[in-house]
């Protein structure tokens, strides 16, 4: 029965034009960056710009990672916050929530189906970005001989075989998806609290912006390890040699805690609240 409900939610997602417009917009940014890089052949100065962006000038197969580093801090979380914020509050605003609940659809079950749909959106978006970036990277960027034949260079300067690069890229994409699951859980919680989807999305973004700001503040050192966005860019560590698991593992655990806490709060709130829209 939950399966049927998930199918319904996925079908709503796929049939919504906004889904595809959002994905296209997110994909547009790394595409633009690739075109500009190919046109000017100018990388960012060391220490500035997103990770891997200077490396793609020599090795185009790294562009999916640079694309990930471009969309992960801002674009992707905004899209996920809007999509997940829509989940309950959007149905409530449209008036369809009450009809779903009297159909009847169990409230817990609805929450699960919504989460699955949001994650499907995340997976789809990340894969579209990665594939587009790979194609662009191979076609437009990098030194052809390096891109086509040579082993890739790890962040630590050693060589990575194609299989290793693929495996690590897969891990990085999975890690980014997990970070977005955390955003989805927060937004889903706000979606059960707020009256409007916009309110839910803004609440989520407020948390993410505050977290990003505190990370740059030395005075907030003590709380930094607990901020949701603290370990988001740790996927770079997967490309060091040997892989530095420390921040990645912490990131996974931290995101897990956020997911459990916010989903729990969302569940407790949604299953006990009066639906009065």
């Amino acid at each position: 029965m939950t399966g049927a409900l998930i199918r319904v939610e996925l079908s709503k997602l796929v049939r919504s034009r906004r889904t595809w417009v959002t994905i296209a917009l997110i994909d547009a940014l790394p595409t633009l960056v690739a075109l500009l890089l190919a046109w000017t052949d100018l990388g960012p100065r060391p220490g500035t710009g997103p990770a891997f962006l200077s490396a793609v000038l020599t090795d185009g197969t790294l562009f999916p990672l640079a694309a990930l580093a471009i969309v992960l801090p801002l674009f992707l979380p905004i899209a996920v916050a809007i999509t997940a914020g829509e989940a309950i509050a959007g149905e409530a605003q449209q008036g369809t929530l009450r009809y779903l609940l009297v159909r009847p659809v169990g409230r817990t079950r609805l929450l699960v189906a919504k989460l699955v749909a949001v994650m499907a959106f995340v997976v789809l978006t990340v894969l579209v970005v990665a594939v587009t970036a790979y194609v662009l990277g191979v076609l437009l960027l990098g030194n052809e001989t390096v891109t086509a034949t040579g082993p890739a260079t790890s962040v630590s300067g050693s060589s990575m075989s194609t299989a290793e690069l693929l495996g690590r890229t897969g891990l990085a994409l999975g890690y980014a998806m997990l970070c977005m699951l955390c955003v989805a859980a927060i937004a889903l919680f706000f979606s059960t609290v707020a009256d409007s989807p916009l309110g839910a999305a803004l609440g989520t973004l407020a948390i993410l912006v505050a977290s990003t700001l505190l990370i740059t503040l030395d005075a907030a050192n003590a709380v930094q390890p607990y901020l949701p966005t603290r370990y988001w860019l740790a996927f770079v560590d997967l490309f060091r040699d040997p892989i530095l698991w420390r921040d990645v593992v912490r990131g996974v655990v931290l995101q897990g805690v956020y997911v459990v806490v916010f989903l729990g709060a969302g569940w407790a709130n949604f299953t006990t609240k009066d639906v009065t829209d």
Partner: peptide, 29 residues
């Protein structure tokens, strides 16, 4: 000794009397 940066790495590798400095973002040893 690898100095870890958000967007790369700056490493020192010492072997006898020789030191190699690796800078990822410059792709330069």
């Amino acid at each position: 000794v690898d100095q870890l940066l958000l967007t790369g790495e700056r490493d020192l590798i010492h072997d006898g009397g020789r030191t190699t400095a690796w800078d990822y973002e410059r792709a330069e040893a």
